[in-house]
Amino acid sequence: MNALLKFLAVTWTVLLWSTAPVPAVAGPEKWSPLEKDGLHDPQGPAIHELQQPGEALSQMPPDSVGNQVRWVEALRKGTINPRTNILPETKIQVLDQDLIYGNTGDNWFVLFPHKAHTEWLDCANCHERIFKTKFGATGFKMMDILAGKACGQCHGAVSFPLTECRRCHSIDPGTFKGKLGAQQAAGGKP
């Protein structure tokens, strides 16, 4: 199983290198027009009232996958400022703590940043329905993620897709000196 995933990782990297790079400047033509996206009915009476994805998304930090937008960057740079609540009593809680996973076979370790997640999500979105509140207690593997569980609930549907191995597997075990699990006063990646 591990060997297979490793094979996948290698092939993947090669394929990604050999395919389209991210263009420095993106035109709206990178996104399909709604009339031709296969989901919208081009005959729908209100189709022209909808905004074309390319019109809005071409104004944001570019990416090569998913919505072709770096959402974390868009939020931190202030390109967008999505509302945090519509009910006045809702609390906003951002947690600045990284978790590092090491059961990654020969692959790089996985860094999970609480900060980037809690800037978008509520603790209750993950705890305790998707993840237990203790490092390692949930117990999930890459296959679970690929099957749409754990990290795969969002990554693969709304957040950057699972084809981007390196965005999660971002810690080189060769140079990593610390301890796995919850990191003290993290700060996320720069």
Partner: peptide, 25 residues
């Protein structure tokens, strides 16, 4: 109906819908 995440996440964080308003994933 088609619900566009990209359009709504420009305006609202996930938590607004998935925590406050109770949309299940």
């Amino acid at each position: 109906p088609i619900f566009p995440h990209w359009f709504h996440r420009i305006r609202f964080r996930c938590k607004v819908c998935h925590a406050d308003l109770g949309f299940k994933f």
